[in-house]
């Protein structure tokens, strides 16, 4: 369970990233965080694995305040929290397999990992993860030879290899075309249901949020302005969250998504 208790974050340049956030996210939930760019979605997600550090409040994961963690505890936490990025963040010159096995780094000794000495189970796990996102045939290809959607699937496989309890996805489809976006979201959803992994996804497309989420959290100017099950959400809710009328570009079928 993830609990935000009055969490605030002020960046060194004075920007308020998060303002008194109170949230409770239950195990296995598929939460979509929506809001315009700059609303604090990324900051919220990145607080959970401490890629950014909140400056106030308590952030509890399984009843432990992660804001007090030192670097060792932090690495341990991060092995349990997988992350997917807008730009896939693969090492482009490395093979697909090398990228996927890097999900095991947190579980592997430094020396072993430097010499690629992974246990057989880990290699098998990496392969199965690739199979689950239907990309096992690209195993030994260099990552930069893959299309955007394929790279994002490799990134999902990397996260699966980590065997996390939580998956954070920061705008995972913002660089993809509509059909590929749906494919990636479907895989995220499938993984969430099959492995019961708590999944938190940042999106700015309203139709996509409606289609895949169990629950929607709306953010504006660093504050949570909406929180409720997807069944209660309609277009008016989004207009309230965005603070303006819904436009074509807010849907994945829109002409331009960036």
């Amino acid at each position: 369970m993830i609990e935000f208790k009055d969490v605030s974050l002020v960046y060194p340049n004075g920007t308020q990233g998060l303002k008194n956030i109170n949230l409770q996210i239950n195990p296995g939930e598929f939460v979509v965080v929506v809001g315009l760019s700059g609303a604090g979605k990324s900051t919220l997600i990145r607080s959970i694995n401490r890629l950014v550090k909140p400056t106030g409040g308590d952030l509890l994961i399984d009843n432990e305040n992660i804001l007090n963690y030192g670097s060792r505890e932090l690495r341990k936490l991060r092995t349990k929290v997988g992350m997917i990025f807008q730009n896939y963040n693969l090492v482009k010159r490395s093979s697909v397999m090398k990228n996927v096995i890097s999900g095991r780094l947190g579980h592997t000794g430094t020396l072993r990992s430097m010499f690629n000495l992974y246990p057989k189970e880990d290699l098998a796990l990496a392969y199965r993860s690739l199979e689950r996102v239907n990309i096992a045939d690209k195993l030994y290809q260099r990552s930069d030879q893959l299309s955007g959607g394929q790279q994002q699937r490799v990134a999902i496989a990397r996260v699966l290899t980590q065997q996390p309890n939580i998956i954070l996805a920061d705008e995972p489809v913002a660089s993809l075309d509509p059909p590929t976006s749906h494919q990636v979201m479907t895989y995220l959803r499938k993984v969430n249901k099959e492995d019961n992994i708590t999944t938190i996804v940042n999106l700015h497309f309203i139709d996509m949020a409606m289609e895949y989420a169990d629950r929607i959290i709306g953010m504006r100017a660093g504050e949570v302005v909406y929180d409720g099950p997807v069944s209660d959400v309609n277009e008016a809710t989004f207009e309230e969250i965005y603070g303006r009328k819904i436009r074509d570009e807010d849907r994945v079928g829109g002409s331009e998504d960036e």
Binding site: F85, R93, K98, S102, S113, A155
Partner: peptide, 25 residues
């Protein structure tokens, strides 16, 4: 720097970040 962030986010330590995300580049 993006792959470096990804390796850090998956719990890699500094040496692992260097061997997996810096050296290949």
């Amino acid at each position: 720097m993006n792959p470096i962030e990804a390796i850090r986010a998956s719990g890699g330590n500094t040496l692992q970040v260097i061997t997996y995300a810096v050296m290949p580049q």
